[in-house]
């Protein structure tokens, strides 16, 4: 009888641990097939049938339809260049080279996948509409307070993530050549 109770408890513990691991895997998916360049992470196969099971589970949980492989490459950052989580309480300067692409966009997402556009504010920029000073690299200010230049508003009380999407690009064929120096840096400035 004692053995039966122990076996039942072991199975129960196994089920709970298994479900907890799945929750963790969706919230912080393992880095199978991931390419990292500075704070930016991309999952090159996420927009194809070859996506790994963890990427598919992540998409299902987020309700997201990713960029298709033919469409482009999407990089995400949920941490700054020093590894700290991106929070809406702080101002960030995003500056640096953008990999070769016909067009690209930079978007700030809240945890539920919405942008500041839901509140009538700007949620992102396309490469065709940013202000770039002569010979300078693209520069953005992500901040809860209005900023000059390419400002993207943040909601002060929540963490956020940034997406850099490259459209019509050959980058995916040579991702290993991309490192932190090839991508925009995300530098934290002042915090509230």
């Amino acid at each position: 009888m004692t053995k039966l109770v122990w076996a039942f408890l072991s199975v129960l513990a196994g089920v709970l641990i298994g479900l907890s691991l799945t929750t963790l895997a969706v919230e912080r998916p393992p880095d199978f097939g991931v390419h990292q360049a500075g704070p930016w992470i991309t999952r090159p196969r996420i927009g194809s049938v070859d996506a790994d099971p963890y990427s598919k589970a992540l998409l299902a949980a987020r309700g997201e339809v990713p960029l298709a492989t033919a469409e482009g490459v999407q990089f995400r950052a949920s941490r700054d260049s020093d590894g700290a989580r991106l929070t809406g309480r702080c101002t960030y300067r995003v500056v640096g080279p953008v990999p070769q692409a016909a067009y690209w966009t930079l978007t700030v997402y809240r945890g539920d996948g919405t942008t500041a556009e839901a509140a009538g504010l700007r949620g992102g920029y396309t490469s065709s509409e940013i202000l770039v000073f002569e010979r300078a690299q693209p520069e953005f200010l992500l901040s809860p307070d209005p900023q000059p230049g390419n400002w993207l508003p943040l909601q002060p009380d929540i963490d956020f993530e940034v997406s850099l999407r490259l459209y019509d690009t050959q980058v995916s064929s040579n991702l290993n050549a991309l490192d932190a120096a090839s991508m925009p840096a995300i530098r934290r400035q002042a915090c509230r």
Binding site: A7, S10, V11, A13, G14, V15, I17, G18, L19, A60
Partner: peptide
């Protein structure tokens, strides 16, 4: 044996839920 049982059940539940989720 019980530790092994926990690990095996956890592995099966984890992998099957990840695969089934989509």
């Amino acid at each position: 044996i019980y530790t092994l049982l926990v690990l095996v059940v956890a592995g099966i539940i984890h992998l099957s839920t990840v695969l089934v989720m989509p």
